[in-house]
């Protein structure tokens, strides 16, 4: 009696999980960066591979509960069987691992194209700032401790004495042209934050005291949300910003006037 109930409970759980994941009322947002397709592909490989193992494991569990009769063939072990499944699962996992490693090297070890858009991203409790070099193509020096005045339009502490900083653009949104690499430099003024752009399949911590580079390429225009993915204090949940991916012309216009063409 309990055996049947237990088997039914296990099967119910498997069916419910399978339904939930296959119907998936919530899922990835559509990927809009150059590497999203391969990431999504790798995820679906993982999904089917591990999903099959999940179902197989539970079916085996349920079967072994039903086949309860006390006639086991190798009750206390069988090293050939042991060897077989060790090698089999190792082959599966390491195969999967190698595919993942390949993907990782594609994502991390290809340099951004020459002339990639340079954006400096700064996290501060609880806001994101995006800084672009102005027409001079150089970012001004910053010293947050000395010059940062969030209320006077200088939240990043750009050195007023540095001419390179006069024309820097500071934006609340990450504005990008479509189809070009963007090279982000992530920094933080206070605690660790993490720039998370689900639609770009992108996440990188911004660590105070470090300048971390990361790059990606948006391939579709539109507006996408940014959230903060590293606990940074009280306002962690509302440390939100947007990515605006524009056409090349619109982006040029924006760089000039910091607004979109009408």
């Amino acid at each position: 009696m309990k055996a049947i109930t237990l088997v039914l409970a296990i099967l119910l759980v498997v069916a419910a999980c399978a339904y939930l994941l296959l119907a998936h009322p919530w899922w990835f947002p559509v990927g809009v960066s150059a590497h999203s397709a391969s990431v999504d592909h790798q995820f679906s490989v993982a999904f089917w591979l591990l999903g099959c193992l999940f179902v197989a494991g539970h079916v085996l569990l349920a079967t072994s509960l039903l086949r309860s009769h006390g006639k086991a063939r190798h009750p206390s072990g069988d090293w050939r069987l042991e060897l077989f499944w060790t090698l089999a699962i190792a082959a599966v996992f390491f195969g999967f691992n190698i595919a993942g490693i390949r993907l990782w090297s594609q994502m991390k070890f290809q340099q951004p194209e020459a002339g990639a858009i340079q954006v400096e991203v700064t996290g501060a409790q609880f806001k994101w700032y995006f800084r672009y070099a102005g027409p001079d193509g150089a970012l001004g020096r910053t010293d947050a401790q000395r010059y940062a005045r969030p209320n006077e339009g200088n939240p990043l502490g750009i050195d007023p004495g540095d001419p390179a900083g006069q024309d820097d653009i500071i934006s609340n949104a990450l504005v990008l042209p479509v189809g070009r690499d963007v090279d982000l430099t992530l920094r933080s003024q206070d605690v660790i934050h993490s720039l998370f752009i689900p639609a770009m399949r992108f996440k990188q911590d911004a660590v105070p005291g470090m300048n971390i580079h990361a790059h990606f390429r948006p391939i579709q225009t539109g507006t996408y949300e940014i959230s903060c993915a590293e606990l940074c204090g009280l306002g962690h949940y509302r440390m939100r910003a947007e990515v605006r991916v524009l056409t090349q012309q619109d982006f040029k216009y924006w760089l000039k006037y910091q607004e979109l063409p009408k």
């Binding site: 790798q42 691992n97 993942g100 990782w104 998370f196 689900p198 996440k203």
Partner: peptide, 14 residues
Amino acid sequence: PLLAQPALDIYLHD
């Protein structure tokens, strides 16, 4: 093993 893949963990971490 899924989380152990850096390429996927980038998205799923935290």
